[in-house]
Simulated assay, not measured.
Amino acid sequence: MTSRGGPLSRVVVVEAIGPDAPDALGHAAGLCGRMAADLGATVIRLAPSGKSETGVFLHHGKRLIATTAEDFLRHVAIHGAGADALICDSGTHAHLSLGPQTIAVLIGMSLDEPLRGSELTAEARCGLLDLIGDPDRAPLRLAGHQLAYSAGLSAYLGLVAALTQRDAGRPAGPVHVDLLDVGVWLNWKALSTAARTGQSPMRPGAKAEWTIVPCRDGYVALVYRIQEWTSLKVATGDARLADPRFETVARRSQNRAELNAILADIFAGKTRAEIRTMALSHKLPLGPVWTPEELKRDPHMIERGYFQPVTVDGQVLAMPSLPVLWNGRAFPPGGFAHAAQDNRTISG
C-alpha cells in the first residue's frame, strides 16, 4: 500500500465489529478508526458493502474489504494477524489468537453484557436520559450518536496510548472501552449531585434550568449561569423578570416553570441573529440553534476550518473535522488518504 504520511503513517489498523454486534459498537469503532485514518494510519474496515450518510462520515479515508457473516472471521484472522491494532468486539476477539505485536481495542456495551443493548439502553442505565425530556412523557434519546462517538473517542485515546507504550518497549493493551462506562463518565455531575443531596436528577421537563424555546425564525438554547442572571435581566429589559418570585436562586428554582414561560415569551419575537447580537454584547452564553447549512457559512466555523471539502464518489462534500490534535496540529478529514483509495472495496 502507498505511504500516506502523517504521525500514524506506519500504523495499520483493522476495524472489525461482528455482524451480530449492536450498531452502537460499529459507530464507536468507526469513529476510532476514522480518527486514526485522518492521522495517516492505514485503516482496513471489514464489513458488508453498502453506504449510508453516517458511513460516509465515519469511513472516509478507509479501505473496505467486503465480508459476509460466513467469511467475516476468516478475514479478521488474515488481516488482523499483520496489523498493529485490531478494533473489535469481545465476541470477535474470542475467536482470535493475536500476536504480541497486535494491540486489541475491545469495544463493548457494558462490562456485564458487552454484546447486548443499544445506545438507548446504555443512556438509560447511566442516567443520561434523566437529563432531557418531560417526566410525564416517553423518554427521549440523545440526538445522533453522542454516546457511541464518545466511546469512539475514548477508544482512539486508548489506541494511541497503547501504541506509545509499545513503541517504548513496554507491554501494551488490550484496551477496553464500554459505552456504559463512558456514559457514567459523561454524566459525572449526576453522580456528584446524588452523593451530595441523596437524590438522583430526574427529567425536569418545563422546570429545566436550561431549556430550548422557539424564536421568530427558529430556536434558541437559553443557557445562563447564576452569576449571569442580572445580565440576562438587563439584556432583555423585561420588567416581568424583576418579579420577587425570581429574586433569588432558590425562588427561581421554585418557580422555574413560570420563569421559563416568561423567557419563552420574550424570545418568541426575536430572530436568532438579534438574540446572538444581544448575547454577545452582554456576554451571555445563549445559543441560537443553526441548521447544518447555516453552520457551513458561520464565520467562526470558517475561521477554524471546521468543515473541509472532500470528494466522495465524484461529489464534493463538506466534511466535519474531528477533535484531534497532534502536537497542536489539526488534520483535515482523510488528509493523508489517496483519493483513488478512499472508501474503495478490496476483494479477497
Rank of each mutant, 00 (worst) to 15 (best):
M202R: 14
V182W: 05
D136C: 03
K207F: 03
G237E: 12
A151E: 08
C126E: 10
L111N: 09
T211S: 08
G152T: 15
R166I: 15
D238L: 02
V213D: 03
I132F: 04
V213F: 01
Q199P: 00
G183W: 09
L129N: 05
A162M: 04
L180M: 07
L140F: 02
L179P: 05
A194E: 15
W188K: 02
I132V: 15
T211G: 00
D243I: 12
L222K: 00
D136A: 13
H145M: 05
A138K: 10
T197I: 03
E209R: 14
S154H: 12
A239Y: 01
V184F: 06
L129Y: 00
T211E: 06
D136G: 13
C215P: 08
R225D: 10
L159K: 02
R203W: 07
L157A: 13
L140I: 15
P114L: 05
P174S: 05
V223E: 01
V160F: 02
R216P: 07
Q165W: 02
R116S: 13
I226S: 04
V213S: 07
V182A: 03
S192R: 12
S231D: 14
K233Y: 01
A161N: 08
L157W: 01
G173N: 07
G127M: 09
G173I: 15
Y224K: 01
G133I: 13
H176W: 13
L222P: 03
L180G: 01
D167F: 03
A151I: 07
R225M: 11
G183Q: 10
R141I: 00
L241T: 08
L222N: 03
D134W: 09
I226E: 12
I226L: 04
E113D: 12
G158E: 09
G183L: 10
E228M: 02
L222A: 06
A151L: 04
G152I: 14
T211M: 06
R225C: 02
G173L: 13
L115V: 00
P204D: 08
H176T: 15
G117T: 14
R203Q: 11
K207H: 10
E228G: 01
T121R: 07
V223I: 15
P139D: 06
D243S: 10
P171T: 13
L222T: 11
A143N: 08
D217Q: 02
L191S: 12
A242Y: 08
Y224R: 03
H145S: 14
A190N: 13
G158L: 11
L129R: 14
T230V: 11
A148T: 06
G127D: 08
L157M: 11
D243E: 08
W185N: 06
L157Q: 11
A151M: 07
R116N: 09
L153K: 00
G205W: 07
W229H: 09
G117R: 12
A122I: 09
A148V: 04
W185P: 00
G205N: 06
H145C: 01
E123M: 13
T211P: 00
V220L: 09
L180K: 03
S200W: 13
R203H: 07
G218T: 04
A148G: 00
G198S: 10
G218I: 03
P204A: 15
L186M: 14
A124D: 11
S200Y: 10
P174I: 15
I132E: 08
A190S: 14
R196Y: 04
V182P: 04
